[in-house]
Amino acid sequence: MRVLAAMSGGVDSAVAAARAVDAGHEVTGVHLALSKNPQSFRSGARGCCSREDAHDARRAADRLGIPFYVWDLSDRFAAEVVEDFVAEYAAGRTPNPCLRCNEKIKFEAVLERGLALGFDAVCTGHYARLERGEDGSVELHRAVDQAKDQSYVLGVLTAHQLAHSLFPLGPSTKIEVRAEAAARGLSVAAKPDSHDICFIADGDTAGFLDARLGRRPGAVVDADGTLLGEHDGTHHFTVGQRRGLRLGVPAADGRPRFVLDVTPVSGTVTVGPREALAVTHLAGTRPTWTGAVPAGRWRGLVQVRAHGGPVGATLELRKDELVVDTDQPLVGVAPGQAVVAYDDTRVVGSATISSTRSPALTS
Rank of each mutant, 00 (worst) to 15 (best):
M1C: 04
V3T: 11
S8Y: 09
G10K: 02
V11P: 01
A14Y: 06
R19I: 11
D22I: 05
D22W: 11
A23L: 04
H25W: 07
V27S: 00
L32Q: 11
L32R: 01
S40N: 12
G47E: 07
C49W: 09
A54R: 15
A60V: 12
D62K: 06
R63C: 08
I66S: 01
L73P: 06
F77G: 02
V82T: 12
F85R: 01
E88M: 09
T94D: 01
L99P: 00
E103A: 08
A109F: 13
V110Y: 03
L117H: 14
G118V: 14
E131G: 05
E134S: 09
V138D: 07
H141Q: 06
H141Y: 09
D145S: 00
Q146Y: 05
V153E: 05
L154I: 13
G155F: 12
G155N: 02
H160A: 15
H164Q: 05
E180H: 01
K191W: 02
S194T: 15
D196S: 08
D196C: 00
I200A: 03
R212S: 04
L213C: 01
R215I: 15
P217S: 08
T226Q: 10
T226L: 04
L227W: 13
G229M: 11
E230L: 06
T238G: 00
A252L: 13
D253H: 08
V262C: 00
P264E: 11
T268I: 14
P273Q: 11
A276W: 05
V279T: 13
T280R: 05
H281A: 10
L282R: 03
W289G: 01
A295Q: 13
L301T: 13
V302A: 03
V304Y: 03
H307N: 03
K319R: 15
K319G: 02
E321Q: 14
E321Y: 07
P329D: 07
A338T: 15
V340H: 00
A341C: 13
V348E: 06
S358L: 04
L361T: 15
